[in-house]
Amino acid sequence: MQWLLDPFRAEFMQRAFIAAIIIGVVAPVVGTWVVLRRMANLGDAMSHGTLAGVGLAYAAGVNVLFGAMGAGLLIAALLLVFSSNRRLGQETVITVLGTAFFALGVVVISRLDTGVELTHFLFGRVLTVQWSDIWLNLALGGVAVLVVLLLFGELRLATFDHVQAEQVGVRVELVQAVLVLLLAVVVVISLRAVGTIMAVTMLVTPAATARLLAHNLRQMTVLGVVFGVSEGVVGLILAYHLSSAPGATIGLVAAGVFAVVFALTLPRRMPHHHRPLD
């Protein structure tokens, strides 16, 4: 019992847990749609690309979270522009944009004459989360969850039934653009605590685990949040006792849960019938 409570003693660890819980809620809510719409590679590109904004914000002395948000918005806008080119596949454009912004971020950070290192942003520094970061993450995360709940019907139509979506006037590309923005929000709120790389893990892995068990969209979302929050908390407790990198420990716990659920649900999926949601 003491082993479980020890990590919560210091206030900076309490902040770390709050940050992990916020990510554990928001990432799977958005991640459900990322998994269902097969946009995981976009999450990856977004997580790397925001580094450009982080580097520039650091150079300008602005809160890096604002820089990351700015880069996320720009990537989302550019994606919309480049996606109109039918000759190039969406995944190609995504990769070109993501790696270009990542490269810009690396160049800017390597030019900074301070002790700032790339790894701080890639893997996060959970001990340095401030209360101001928590408030900003709560606000951004709250808006993201609200947007998903309000657009639940539109998201469902745009994802599963293009034809009906167009009939009832749901603009699929607009829904896609909103999701890209939500992706940026998830990366931003994960930045300080678990870093940009683990943001993708939290976005995809809990939602993917939930997809293996859920019978409908609501179940998948709720299960994803349950996995996300518990993996975040358990990962942090383990990282505290093992003195291991917190972001990566959370990522490993999430991957472990996925593996176990995958193995347990294997027999059910064996007779090759695909279970659609809803």
């Binding site: 210091a10 770390a16 001990l127 003195s243």
Partner: peptide, 8 residues
């Protein structure tokens, strides 16, 4: 980087 326990 210090660990959480070191910082504590």
């Amino acid at each position: 980087e210090p660990s959480a326990q070191t910082l504590e």
